[in-house]
Design a protein around this nucleic acid. Structure first.
Lengths: 192, 192
DNA sequence: TAAATTATTTGACATTTATCAAACACTTAT
DNA sequence: ATAAGTGTTTGATAAATGTCAAATAATTTA
């Protein structure tokens, strides 16, 4: 049996409890993958047909813009699902990299296996739907922060609502996630 | 039979073709609702348990911030699905209003009916999953624009990728959607 | 532990965007 | 057709954020 699987299953069960039957069907398709700091889970340009549940550690999703600046678009820590959504859903080349910021343990499942499980088990597809809905609401929240708040307010929001991120993610990565420059973020932190 | 339903079904069939059986099960739960300009499809604070497919017309989603400014978070035109996602998925009070910007014809389906259909028809739940995934990718695209681009670049992006929006949505609404002020948007349009 | 590397802060200044007020343009209702 | 209301542009100025360079702090590696 896959080490750490119980913890993963518990996390999943909170979102939508699966029957014993589904769990047993799911288990063989789950694999463990470890990454050391700076390893890539997903590379920009590749078709990313894997979904990662982060058991421990922390990752960033980013891409390079026209001026070769890195834009960080998402961060994931324990219990988050790291997936290059566009690529995973459409099986087209990934627009982003996903990279480990710490040594990171994951459970991986492949797109084609999920597809098979979706076909066979309605309730697994339900779980998939609920996860997509949750993910959507989370991204929408970030989008609204960016539509609404000033640099300082963005930092305070993230500090209040995602303090783990501020602790664990280097500021230089947080800045572009918040849509501001590193120096501005640094200054905004100084104020109160 | 519901007028306009065929067109709606065609739109849905492109995302995931449903069997005749599912279509027949779905049809009785679809209703037509018309809105005149300025009518509300969803009111902030209400639990919004309806999902609207826009047959014709155009809507905005917005909320009022702390200073009673309206922040427009989303726009929908023909074939878009208008839904207060957070409220619809969690059945908690809506954080946003959805308002008709033109006279608007919609097909409505209720959350509890969708739930029943999801329970009964796996393939309808699959359609739901795929729609959630599509919606997610669209929102993520907007989020990345806000993380990355200057006022001028945001306008150019939207002009290039969603020209219908620029034509149909008053600039005063587009501005907050792009995370900038009306005057800045106006100026940025002037340049070239 | 020291040196090298990486991350963050600070300063001076440039640029972008916001603010407030007014003018202008366009639409709607009488 | 006119007046009233809405929407957009323009101008002057203020505030926020970006840029570039350098200093400091923290972390990693030899």
């Amino acid at each position: 049996m896959l080490p750490g699987l119980n913890k993963y299953l518990h996390f999943i069960q909170q979102i939508y409890p699966l029957s014993q039957e589904s769990l047993e069907a799911l288990a063989p398709f789950l694999n463990h993958k470890s990454f050391v700091k700076k390893d890539y889970l997903v590379k920009q340009g590749d078709i990313s047909n894997e979904l990662f549940i982060i058991m421990s550690g922390c990752v960033r999703e980013y891409f390079e813009d026209a001026h070769a600046n890195e834009i960080n678009t998402w961060f994931g820590i324990e219990n988050a699902i790291a997936v290059s959504t566009y690529s995973f859903f459409s099986l087209k080349p990934s627009l982003t990299n996903i990279q480990a910021l710490e040594d990171t343990e994951t459970i991986v499942i492949r797109q084609e296996d999920i597809q098979k499980l979706f076909n066979e088990f309605h309730e697994i597809e339900r779980l998939g739907r609920l996860l997509a809905e949750q993910y959507l609401v989370q991204i929408d929240e970030i989008k609204i922060i960016l539509q609404t708040l000033s640099a300082k307010q963005r930092y305070e929001y993230i500090l209040q609502h995602k303090p783990e991120l501020v602790q664990r993610i280097p500021l230089k990565y947080l800045a572009s996630f918040l849509g501001i420059k590193l120096e501005t973020l640094s200054r905004v932190r100084g104020q109160k």
